[in-house]
C-alpha cells in the first residue's frame, strides 16, 4: 500500500464521501464474455492474413503506425504547399527580360511561289512536255550607225 502524504489528505467529510462511494460488481458472465471474445480475436491473427493484420495494427503510444505515417506525410505536404505559395507570392513583381526573338520564317505558300516563270513552266507541264530551254541572252551587236534604226533606203521602209 503506498504511503499517503498528510498534505494530500482531504477534509474528513469529503474523504468519507470518497470512501463510501461504491462501484457495482462486474456481472457474472463477465469472464465468459471475455473468453468468448478473446478466442474470437485470437482467430483474427492466425495465418498470413493474421500476420499482416498484426503488422497493420502495430501502435506507438496507442496510435497506429500507419496513422502516424499518414499524418506526418500530410503535415509535410501541407508545409510544402504553404512554403511554395509563400515563395510564389514573395517573388518580386518585375517582369523578366525578354530576349529578342528570331525573325519568323515566312512559309512559301503556293500563291506566293506562283510567279510568271512558274506559271510558264506549269503550262508546259500540263501538256506533258518540257518547257523549251531558256533563250540565252545574245550579245548586242554593234551597229555601224551607232545602233540607230532607220527606214531610209529599204524596200518596205524597214531595215
Amino acid at each position: 500500500m503506498p504511503k499517503i502524504d498528510a498534505e494530500d489528505e482531504l477534509p474528513p467529510d469529503i474523504a468519507a464521501a470518497f470512501d463510501q462511494y461504491q462501484t457495482p460488481p462486474l456481472s457474472r458472465d463477465f469472464e465468459a464474455k471475455f473468453w468468448a471474445q478473446f478466442e474470437a480475436r485470437r482467430g483474427r491473427y492466425r495465418g498470413f492474413a493474421g500476420f499482416l493484420r498484426r503488422l497493420w495494427e502495430i501502435e506507438i503510444e496507442g496510435v497506429a503506425v500507419w496513422r502516424l505515417a499518414a499524418s506526418t506525410f500530410s503535415g509535410g505536404a501541407a508545409c510544402a504547399l504553404f512554403l511554395g505559395c509563400f515563395a510564389l507570392f514573395a517573388m518580386p513583381a518585375e517582369t523578366p527580360r525578354v530576349l529578342p526573338l528570331p525573325t519568323t520564317p515566312v512559309p512559301e505558300t503556293p500563291r506566293m511561289a506562283f510567279d510568271a516563270r512558274a506559271f510558264y513552266a506549269r503550262e508546259w507541264e500540263e501538256f506533258g512536255l518540257t518547257p523549251p530551254p531558256k533563250i540565252a541572252p545574245t550579245k548586242r551587236q554593234k551597229l555601224e550607225n551607232g545602233g540607230e534604226i532607220s527606214c531610209v533606203g529599204s524596200e518596205n521602209g524597214w531595215v
Binding site: 462511494y21 462501484t23 457495482p24 460488481p25 462486474l26 463477465f30 469472464e31 471475455f34
Partner: peptide, 11 residues
C-alpha cells in the same frame, strides 16, 4: 486486474 479496471471504468 479485472476488478480494478472495472472500478476505474465505472468511476
Amino acid at each position: 486486474h479485472r476488478e480494478a479496471v472495472g472500478r476505474l471504468c465505472f468511476q
